[in-house]
Design a protein around this nucleic acid. Structure first.
Length: 469
RNA sequence: GUCCCCAUCGUCUAGAGGCCCAGGACCCGGCCCUUUCAAGGCCGCGACACGGGUUCGAAUCCCGUUGGGGACGCCA
């Protein structure tokens, strides 16, 4: 087998969504696993709907996910001449013909066929009309054999095929002269030297028509592999309109690319019982033979769990870089990694399902004016704690060293002095005083991270508030 | 309507005739740990769609039924 070359070929008509991302992932993994190449092709033959913003969004999404591709981006619109040439060639050889049936006529005949309970494929009216180039508005249709069957051995679906009679003479060039999807795909896959077409199962039966095109072009087809669809909670194919599934949205919600790829990889593919896959493991183990044929749902709960796993696993500085935008959004200013923040990240990584959540929990360190959760204040900063809190504040202020062990000692002493006060009775008020919230890492750790000055100031402010009633 | 595909816990899946009165993971519930929240540990709930075959033996093979999905564009 020659060197493997796959391609990811999105149409730039929106953001990069989950289904496309998984197709990209599997194309990437397959190519890399086999020491081959991955090409990126933008299928912009439909100029009405294609936008450069969308192309940029797709490229950005792919880069964020961590996929690298080989060579320059291939845009179908830049290969118009080539497409036109081959259509002409097909017409000359009699593999295609001009059709002057108007869209309205076709629609009327289609409706009639359906009304009569017949299955509709183009009825071949212009097949042998031999319309020339000057016969007015026309499209070009591929001439399919009247009989026979197009078959291929799908790398996922196994032996597959469709009768030529059920395909119908498909249009390959619009009346405005632009090529249609199937023609462009086949020509470009050929020109790019694609060896494996790995795409969504919604293209499974389209393969037959494309095989007819390969025949007409007298070129051998590549191998095909169709991936099971990812469906929404209703079991329906993911739709850009209905389902909020853009890769950028996941990023903005604080999901890591590692988690997203891991999640996607396990939908429709498995490697024994293994659940956790790094990008490296995906590319080492990915195998088309392990891909299923049944559609799968994307479970948000599993994503959250995987995201937390990767948050727990990533090296600290890498995690900081991922979290930085979220910290900065929370702080409202640039944030640099210092010892306190590094320590806080270590404390927070076990309690954050997303980077958004992590940033929210880090807020008490990032800003000077903490916003207090009033319910927590009412519950924990009550007058009866005032004496113990004052005693603790004094002990803290007198501490020679502001480290976790010393802080723990001060708390123990204060609890003992208060007649064996339960640790929680004192820790919660302090937690609310310094973080504004009833939830944070351990209180000693929290104070150590915050530092002596800010901690004492916030406790002092809480005391003032308590004294004031 | 025509053609195609699929069918194991709510979800993702292991399972390629006996290792399965079905294993793992997520979710959910409980317990432990504990200064909060998590994390972690332990336990639990929970499925081979149905009906026929084949076989000594079927989640695994065959047929049918039912259910779900996909494709049938001058979209990709």
């Amino acid at each position: 087998m020659s060197k493997v070359r796959t391609r990811f070929a999105p149409s730039p008509t929106g953001f990069l969504h989950l289904g496309s991302a998984r197709t990209a992932l599997f194309n990437w993994a397959f190519a890399r696993r086999h020491g081959g190449e991955l090409c990126l092709r933008i299928e912009d033959t439909d100029l009405e709907r294609s936008t450069s913003e969308s192309e940029a969004a797709i490229v950005e999404g792919l880069a964020w996910l961590g996929f690298d591709w080989d060579g320059a981006i291939f845009r179908q619109s830049e290969h118009r001449v080539r497409h036109a040439e081959l259509v002409e060639q097909l017409v000359e050889k009699g593999h295609a013909y001009r059709c002057t049936c108007s869209a309205q006529d076709i629609e009327a005949r289609r409706q009639a066929a359906i009304a009569a309970g017949r299955n509709w494929v183009y009825d071949g009216r212009c097949r042998d009309a031999k319309h020339g180039p000057d016969s007015g508005p026309h499209v070009v249709r591929l001439r399919l054999p009247a009989e026979g069957r197009f078959e291929w051995d799908d790398l996922v679906f196994g032996p597959s095929g469709k009768d030529a009679a059920e395909i119908g003479d498909a249009i390959i060039r619009r009346s405005d002269g632009t090529p249609l999807y199937h023609l462009a795909v086949v020509v470009d896959d050929l020109d790019m030297g694609i060896t494996h077409v790995i795409r969504g199962a919604d293209h499974h039966l389209n393969t037959a028509l494309q095989l007819a095109l390969y025949d007409a072009l007298e070129r051998p087809p590549p191998r095909f592999a169709h991936l099971p669809l990812i469906v929404n909670a209703e079991g329906k194919k993911l739709s850009k309109r209905r389902d909020p599934v853009s890769v950028q949205d996941f990023r903005d919600q604080g999901y890591l690319p590692e988690a997203l790829c891991n999640w996607l990889a396990r939908i429709g593919w498995s490697h024994g019982d293994q659940e956790i896959f790094s990008m490296q493991e995906i590319r080492d183990h990915f195998d088309l033979a392990g891909v299923h044929r049944s559609a799968g749902q994307a479970d948000p709960g599993k994503l959250a769990w995987l995201n937390q796993h990767w948050i727990k696993t990533l090296p600290g500085d890498a995690l900081f870089e991922r979290a930085r935008p979220f910290f900065e959004a929370e702080a409202g200013r640039p944030v640099a990694l210092d010892a306190s923040l590094a320590r806080l990240i270590e404390l927070l990584r076990e309690r954050s399902k997303t980077l958004v959540e992590m940033a929210r929990l880090a807020r008490f360190l990032l800003v000077d004016e903490v916003v207090s959760d009033e319910a927590a204040v009412r519950k924990h900063l009550r007058p009866e704690i005032l004496p113990a809190l004052e005693d603790l504040a004094a002990r803290l202020a007198a501490l020679p060293a502001w480290d976790e062990a010393s802080l723990a000692g001060a708390f123990e002493a204060a609890c003992a002095a208060a007649g064996g006060l339960a640790m929680g009775k004192l820790a919660q008020p302090v937690r609310v005083a310094v973080t504004g919230s009833a939830v944070s890492p351990g209180i000693h750790e929290t104070l150590a991270v915050l530092g002596r000055e800010r901690s004492l100031a916030r406790i002092g402010a809480a005391l003032e508030r308590l004294r004031a009633g």
